Amino acid sequence: MRTRSGFRDLVHGVIPEAKVIAEERDATLYVWTDATGARLIITTEGDLVRAVTTSYAGPLGARLADVRAADGGLAIAEIVDADDDVLAGVACELEELQLLGDAEDVPAADACLVGLGRSVEVFDGPEEFLASDASRMTFAGESADDETGEPMRFEPESFSPDGAFTMQVDAVARVNGTVLDVTRHEVERTGQAFTAAQVRTGGFEVTLCVPTGEPDLAPGQVVAANTYLVASVPSLLVA
Results as ranks from 00 to 15, higher is better:
R4M: 15
G6K: 13
F7Q: 03
D9P: 02
H12Q: 14
I15R: 03
I15S: 04
I15A: 03
E23L: 10
E24L: 15
Y30F: 09
D34G: 02
A35V: 05
A35G: 02
T36V: 04
T36K: 07
A38T: 01
L40I: 01
V49S: 00
V52R: 04
T53Y: 15
P59Y: 08
P59F: 10
L60R: 14
G61L: 03
A65H: 00
V67T: 08
V67S: 10
G72C: 12
G72E: 11
G72M: 14
A77D: 11
D83Q: 15
D84G: 01
A88I: 11
G89R: 15
C92S: 14
L94T: 02
L94H: 00
E95N: 09
Q98A: 15
L99M: 07
V106P: 01
A111F: 03
L113I: 04
L116K: 11
L116N: 05
G117H: 00
R118Q: 12
R118W: 06
S119N: 11
V120Y: 03
V122D: 13
D124H: 12
E128R: 15
A134T: 05
A134R: 04
F139L: 13
A140S: 15
E142D: 15
D145K: 11
E147C: 12
E147A: 12
G149R: 01
M152L: 12
M152D: 04
F154A: 10
P156R: 09
P161D: 09
D162G: 09
F165E: 13
T166V: 06
Q168E: 10
A173S: 06
N176C: 07
G177V: 08
V179P: 02
L180G: 08
H185S: 06
R189V: 01
A197W: 01
V199I: 08
G202N: 00
G202K: 06
V210C: 08
V210A: 10
P211C: 08
A218H: 08
Q221W: 04
V223I: 09
T227N: 10
Y228E: 13
L229D: 06
P234L: 06
L236S: 02
V238M: 11
